[in-house]
Every structure is written in C-alpha cells, then in structure tokens.
C-alpha cells in the first residue's frame, strides 16, 4: 500500500446520548482525530454484534460503541443489553486473535461532548500503535492459496484439448486416496 496507513474507526452511537454528545462536541468546536465515522442508531441495544464483525471485516481497524450511562437509557435498558453482549463478544474476539483495544464500549451522555473528544483521540492513538487490522487484506491473502491452484489448473488445461493432457499427467501421478 503506497498510501500512508491511518486508523479507521467505525462508531455506533445511540441517538439520544452519544450521538447528541458528538453533536455537542461539534457545537463546542472541540477538536478531535478525524479517523472516526459515526453510524447513528436509536439505541445501543440495537447494535447487533454482526454490525461490529461486519465493520471489522470490511476494513475498520476499530469499533467504538457509545450508549447512555447505566440507568439513563432513553429506552430504559437497551444499554445493559449491549453491555452484556459486549462482555462476551470481547472475549470471543480475543479468542479469534483480535486485540481487546479494537472494540470499545463507552457510556457518553448528551452533555459529554468532551468525552467524545477524549475517547476518540485515545482510541485513535491506541489503534495507531496497534497497527492495521486489515481484514480485507488478510482475506485476500488467505484466498491466494486457492487462486494459485485455479491458475495452475488453467495453465495445465489451457495447453491441449483439456481432457487429454490432464489425463496424461494424472496417469503419472499417484494420489493419496481413491
């Protein structure tokens, strides 16, 4: 990659607290790292763990989840549901080799524009230190194993009438089973 790598964070913010806090950060002209892309949901309870995995596999280097503080959820307890998912998801991602810093849950109230700034900056720095997660690149690398075979077959069969040449070759080759 010729372009200099910069961390890319996807954030899922609840409409009532954290998204509003990010708006407040804007209104207050607080300055923070430009690496975060916010996706608005009504409640942190809506955050399907699939969204987090999807973001990571599509190229995010980290995922930030923002919800209302405990007891403060606009929808009573959506934030607890996210917290519970997060606890196991974090462990599972660790088992899958993903560093814990890459997925972060923060309670940020509508008044805490400053916290948005701090958390985004902290996380950007942490992930810059970790380096890219680069899932799309990894997938491509993994897939090359298969592509090489397809190329081989093509090269082999491109030569003659197909069946004849390959038949001749396999005749010399002993294969493990069958």
């Amino acid at each position: 990659m010729s372009k200099e790598w910069k961390p890319r964070l996807v954030a899922f913010f609840c409409n009532w607290c954290t998204y509003t806090a990010a708006d407040l950060a804007g209104v207050s002209r607080l300055k923070y790292a430009p690496n975060v892309r916010v996706i608005r949901l009504m409640c942190s309870g809506r955050i399907d763990p699939q969204f987090i995995l999807e973001a990571l596999t599509k190229g995010a280097d980290g995922v930030l989840i923002g919800g209302c503080h405990p007891n403060d959820c606009h929808y009573v307890e959506g934030n607890y549901k996210m917290l519970r998912r997060f606890q196991l998801l974090k462990r599972m991602l660790g088992d899958m080799g993903i560093e814990p810093e890459r997925v972060r849950l923060e309670w940020i109230s509508a008044a805490e524009g400053e916290k948005v700034r701090r958390v985004v900056n902290e996380m950007t720095e942490q992930i810059a230190n970790l380096g890219p997660l680069g899932m799309p690149g990894r997938f491509a690398e993994w897939d090359r194993e298969v592509e090489s075979l397809a190329a081989q077959i093509e090269a082999r069969e491109g030569g003659g009438c197909g069946c004849g040449s390959s038949g001749a070759e396999t005749a010399e080759k002993e294969v493990a089973h069958v």
Binding site: G45, L53, L88
Partner: peptide, 9 residues
Amino acid sequence: AKILSSLCA
C-alpha cells in the same frame, strides 16, 4: 454473533 446477541441480552 446472533445467538451471542440473543443469549447475552
């Protein structure tokens, strides 16, 4: 991810 989401919630 889906069963995790459901069980944990």
